[in-house]
Design a protein around this nucleic acid. Structure first.
Length: 821
DNA sequence: TCCTCCCGCCAAGCA
DNA sequence: TGCTTGGCGGGAGGA
């Protein structure tokens, strides 16, 4: 039954149509003594927004409201109810969507600037807001509480808040991430998933104690609100309720996103974690439901803030609501760890801190991980090896080779590839039979800027997005501008059917490096668990947010910055899904034809191994992945890697661009992970390499700008130390394998004049069939001596990642579908 | 049928 | 004591 309040709110249109006998009805008056009415229609919503934005209109409205007597209004209401039939009256009510918290939050946010000037503090008076937005006070509290959790507002006094906007957001997110890591939410998530799974097969499983102990560490966090220095927290209720508040829940919810990889959190898991450990055993259904309700409330606000986005994750047990983090990537604070990179900082606010190797490896190989995970002996060796390497690298002098300024000057601007994108993706999706050269031609044709301009007079457009920039005079002279904001490079593993990658220029929108190799993987002694939630979508779908309906919200700078990439990705997503599915089917028929599922990408941080054992790495490597040596402190990968999926499975590209160019990977395509990149290769470094398709290689190299268009790097016969400039940069390669199909690495060494150090760029070709048998993989790497029901001796890392004996994280395919709403 | 989440009761706590 | 704040869960709209 509707409340009187709801009955009072009626569409103006309906009023005029249905009440010929009543007084002329214009805008229904809203006297002060009556409760505020809900918005009626989208038109009135818009009107309200305008009203909120314009004090003049607002005051006019208020004057008009005051002039109307309350008796008149009551009469009209009565009249309305008399004249409207029940159904019609129902229809006249605003739909739930029009009253949603998300929409309300949009309106609320539209009132205040994202980045208010520090000199002009915006104050929020709840009374004003409730009146102007025609909403119950209660709803505003919901919004304000979530905003408070992000320190976007803070309570000043009764009824009064201060608007901080997004100024504090970077620090807040960073703090939340840190706390989230400390609370070991990753482990909790893994545990919950595992528990779910085990319950499915063994309801009497005795994992409960383990579970409880796992949650024990988060007990304290249950009672804390993460505060920022300088942002005073004055909750109305200082104790008790404060800790149950939506604020804390909201923070924890955000933490879950920030610590997990991919950054998708299902409501169910979030609710369980938020309920806390002590409730898990007798998980009250009503409590669970309540939590879910609150999460929806929080999620609505976070969605309005464009921090998360709703998705659905399809598992074996059905479709589950989940949310994906679409906010800024948060890098761990690195105050404690200094990078020796000579990089300069050029980063968006959120990325000011640089990912540290230590943190990266700490996350990869936590020294005090949960007891629930047992490290396999091979991993222990690996950890030691890595640590040794790190020591060596940190003490090793670097000897960068200088590059002439002219090389700089001839750096062409990385093309805006938006125009190329449809052609590329379409091509890749539809015509796998077509060659890479053809695709390249398309790119070149559609984007003339891709052709390097050799004029020495051309100035480096450093302020512009620069990709990997070929030098002018040399046939192959890739010079990579450093992007020093992070210390990681990426391994991007393309699934055979997922090579429809795209790129776009989108300032400010970046695929940020993950702070550590957080690959969501699920340790299991049963391969079936591999089908449990995971998502490879991750960052690749960022920017797909549906355009906000709020005009005011559209004006937010961050959203502007996303638009091009959004468009880009939308186009990619607009491609017939059936194509994907068809290909997937052919790829994975052997797995399970009853389900449509997308494989996870392969998120493989490449650990550094020494020169000496690199070949060893190659030969030893079993999963078609080899750990590599890297020198770079790199940035998010950028550029396009539109290779034929059948040929290239893995690309490991340390990227050093200042450019905000993104690698925009279509859904399901890849995952990215940072590389522990410490070593400093000399320019003669080589690595085993297969004999890949030169077309694919050249296309890729050209497309990402490593070599100028038209220049071909010979790949058959095997690449030979291709000089990359007149200086000592080169692309080095050695053929070490006779088996082209085996996953091997082509490694290129570049000198970055800005970083004054060498970088390695490597391509890795994976065995096509290898990752397609999750069961086999699981058995292979995680078989336990004690049989299927025992704890695997080789376990996941704390973050759920799994490792092969070669230090390569390997994430088996999982059945998965992540769909956007 | 289940997901989503609006709605408002009512208690805690503050002024 | 009245008001503010916000936890909470019923139940309805929507998919």
């Amino acid at each position: 039954l509707k409340t009187p309040l709801k009955q009072a709110s009626t569409s103006q249109l309906v009023l005029t149509e249905r009440q010929p006998d009543c007084q002329p009805l214009t805008t229904p008056p809203k006297p002060k003594e009556t409760p505020p009415a809900d918005p009626w229609t989208p038109t009135s919503n818009l009107k309200m927004l305008i009203s909120a934005a314009s004090p003049e209109i607002r005051s006019r409205e208020q004057r008009r409201q005051l002039s109307d007597s309350s008796s008149e209004v009551l009469q009209k209401k009565h009249c309305l109810q008399e004249h409207l039939l029940g159904d019609e009256y129902e229809k006249s009510q605003p739909s739930r969507k029009e009253k949603s918290l998300g929409l309300l939050c949009h309106k609320f946010l539209a009132r205040y600037p994202d980045y208010p000037s520090p000199s002009q503090k915006s104050y929020i008076c709840l009374d004003e807001v409730t009146e102007e937005l025609h909403v119950e006070r209660r709803r505003i509290y919901d919004i304000v509480n979530v905003l408070e959790s992000l320190h976007m507002v803070s309570r000043l006094a009764r009824n009064r808040y201060v608007w901080h906007g997004r100024h504090n957001l970077p620090q807040t997110l960073q703090a939340l991430k840190k706390v989230g890591e400390e609370n070991k939410y990753i482990q909790q998530i893994q545990m919950i998933k595992r528990r779910e799974y085990e319950h499915e097969f063994d309801p009497d499983s005795e994992r409960n104690e383990e579970m409880a102990s796992s949650f024990g560490s988060s007990e304290q966090s249950e009672m804390s609100f993460v505060e920022l220095p300088g942002v005073e927290f004055r909750a109305a209720s200082v104790n008790g309720r404060k800790y149950k508040s939506l604020r804390v829940m909201s923070q924890k919810f955000v933490m879950l996103f920030l610590v997990s990889t991919p950054q998708i959190v299902s409501l169910e898991v979030a609710a369980k974690i938020l309920i806390g450990e002590d409730q898990l055993e007798d998980l009250d259904k009503s409590k669970f439901k309540t939590k879910i309700r609150r999460l929806y409330d929080i999620a609505n606000v976070l969605s309005s803030l464009k921090l998360i986005k709703k998705v659905h994750v399809t598992e074996e047990r059905g479709r589950k609501p989940a949310f994906k983090w679409t906010g800024p990537e948060v890098l761990p604070n690195t105050q404690d760890i200094k990078l020796e990179a000579t990089s300069t900082t050029c980063s968006p606010p959120i990325s000011e801190s640089i990912t540290s190797k230590e943190q990266c490896s700490k996350a990869l190989f936590p020294s005090k991980g949960k007891q629930n995970f047992t490290r396999h002996s091979s991993l222990i060796k690996l950890v030691k090896s890595i640590e040794n390497d790190r020591r060596k690298i940190q003490s090793a002098p670097t000897s960068p080779v200088k590059i002439s300024a002219s090389t700089y000057q001839s750096l062409p601007v990385f093309p805006n590839t938006i125009a190329q994108f449809p052609a590329i993706t379409k091509h890749q999706l539809e015509g796998q039979s077509k060659t890479a050269e053809e695709m390249q031609m398309k790119c070149v044709l559609s984007s003339p800027e891709t052709v390097p301009k050799p004029e020495p007079s051309q100035q480096p457009a450093l302020s512009q997005p620069l990709g990997v920039c070929p030098a002018s005079h040399s046939s192959v002279s890739p010079v990579i501008l450093p992007h020093p904001q992070s210390g990681v490079s990426y391994a991007i593993y393309l699934h055979p059917s997922q090579a429809h990658t795209v790129t776009t220029y989108s300032p400010g929108f970046m695929l940020q490096p993950l702070p550590c190799a957080n690959v969501t993987g699920i340790k299991s002694n049963n391969s079936k668990i591999l089908n449990i939630i995971t998502t490879e979508e991750g960052d690749t779908q960022r920017g797909q947010d549906e355009p906000t309906k709020s005009l005011a919200a559209e004006e937010r700078p961050e959203m502007k910055s996303e638009t091009s990439s959004q468009r880009c990705l939308k186009r990619s997503q607009a491609l017939p899904e059936s194509n994907l599915i068809k290909r997937r089917k052919s790829d994975e028929e052997s797995l399970d034809t009853s389900l449509t599922f997308f494989p996870s990408g392969y998120l493989i941080p490449l650990t550094h191994c020494t020169h000496g054992n690199k070949a060893e790495c190659s030969t030893k490597e079993k999963a078609g992945v080899c750990s590599l040596q890297h020198t770079a402190y790199s940035s998010p990968i950028t550029g396009v890697i539109p290779m034929p999926a059948s040929e290239l499975k893995t690309v490991n590209i340390p990227a050093f661009h200042i450019t905000p160019l993104n690698i925009m990977l279509s859904p399901n395509s890849i995952a990215a992970a940072p590389v522990l990149s410490n070593s400093c290769l000399n320019s003669s470094s080589t690595s085993s390499a297969p004999n890949p398709s030169s077309s694919a290689l050249n296309f890729m190299l050209q497309h990402i700008g490593l070599i100028p268009a038209g220049v071909q790097v010979p790949a058959n016969p095997p690449l030979q130390h291709v000089p990359v400039s007149s200086q000592s940069e080169n692309i080095s390669h050695s053929s070490g394998s006779t088996n082209v199909q085996e996953g091997k690495v082509i490694e290129f060494t570049f000198y970055s004049p800005i970083n004054e150090s060498n970088f390695v760029f490597s391509l890795q070709f994976l065995q096509p069939k290898e990752p397609q048998e999750p069961q086999a993989v699981t058995e292979n790497f995680f078989r336990t001596p004690g049989g299927p029901n025992t704890e695997p001796a080789l376990s996941a890392n704390s973050d759920g990642t799994q490792r092969t004996s070669q230090g390569t994280l390997y994430i088996p395919q999982r059945k998965l579908e992540v769909s956007e709403d």
